[in-house]
Amino acid sequence: MIILEIAFYVFIVTVGIQLVFYGIIFNSLPRHQSVTPHQKNISVSVIICAKNEADNLRTFLPSIMAQAYSDFEVVLINDNSKDDTLEVLEHFKEKHRNIKIVNVKPIEKFWGNKKYALTLGIKAATHNFLLFTDADCKPRSRYWIQEMSSHFTNEKTIVLGYGAYEKVKGSFLNKLIRYETFLTAIQYLSYASLGQPYMAVGRNLAYRKEQFFEANGFMQHMHLKSGDDDLFINQTATASNTTICISKESFTESIPKQSIKDWTLQKRRHISTANYYKLRHKIFLASFYCSQLLFWLLAIVLMSFMFQWKLVLSLIVLRFIIQLINLFLASKKLDENDLPFLSPVLELFLIAFQFFIFIKNMISKPEYWK
């Protein structure tokens, strides 16, 4: 059948594209040499924006304050919280001299906009070197600030880190969330190591204060509710000013969503910002996703009709071998050793989930960051 012949040749091209991604592009992360930089004693401002995060702050803020670093302040931004967030922040400030509180009152123009709150926090920061994380995050070690800040140089003004999610035993949703986070990190860290940085996650990101003001802050995308991390990096990061930090002591860990509904809302906000990436980055990301989708669809169709099944099966096996090898190597770097072995199943669910999100965002747009 002519349709199956066309599908067969498209499948060959699709497998080739997938091999380029997994075998070459994403292989740059496992090959990345983590050179231990000279430890610097630069002054660092850790910035945390909190909205209705009283319980998480009680739990995770102590791990920030216990960092083994000589000169840092913590700028805590209360973004018009309705719970006890401000009271919790004031309680910590009574115990720690290096805490600064920024209490944000809403204004009509920037109502519910995290970027407005972050801008006020950045302006209030004492130091030029800024390190960002979230209220529901904790560093995995006491050397998080030291590891991330040590990668700053005269040229490197942006440092991309890895923000993992906590493992929940026996939860398939948790593995799916962590796999999506792991795969996203492989992409943005690999591209950054190849000189094409395009995004970061606000759970673990550092840049100079002057970098923020030189880029005119978030003004290019202030009208969007999301993107304080990925859109800002997409706008400002270059091969010359960006580096990555993937030492295990530099990782942060967050609480994952507990329901598919909450995770869907979170990912809708995140994915909606990709439309505003630079064209070449959108092409990279779309090519990877489309090749994933086509690989599964065409593999199922061709094998169902047993069309050139020996060759098709060989290509399927080859693609999975290359994928698993590189995911396994990347998992060693990012300390996600339990994920590669489940990748075929997790990948299939993730493709379907992302397609659902894409359709959902076409119908309606997510509004607020919380």
Rank of each mutant, 00 (worst) to 15 (best):
A117R: 01
F92I: 10
K93M: 06
Y69N: 02
V104G: 00
M65S: 14
N80V: 08
F110V: 10
A54Y: 07
V102I: 14
R97L: 11
F92V: 11
K51Q: 14
F92T: 06
K95H: 13
E87F: 05
Y69F: 15
K105A: 11
E90R: 02
N113E: 06
L61C: 06
I107W: 07
A54N: 04
I99A: 02
I64Q: 01
K100G: 04
A66N: 15
S63P: 06
K105Y: 05
N103R: 10
N98A: 07
A117Q: 03
A68N: 13
A50C: 15
K114M: 11
D71N: 14
T85R: 01
K100C: 14
E73L: 07
I48W: 02
T85A: 12
H91Q: 13
E108N: 03
E90D: 05
S63L: 12
F60M: 11
K95R: 10
F72Q: 01
F92W: 06
V75F: 00
H91S: 13
K100R: 12
N98W: 07
K105S: 14
V88N: 00
N78E: 05
E108C: 06
D55I: 15
N56Q: 10
P106H: 08
L86G: 02
Y116C: 09
K93P: 03
F60N: 04
D55L: 15
W111R: 07
K105M: 14
K109Y: 02
L86A: 09
D83S: 04
T59L: 13
N80S: 12
E90N: 05
A54S: 15
N103F: 11
K51M: 12
G112P: 01
H96L: 13
F92L: 14
Y116D: 04
P106G: 05
I107Q: 06
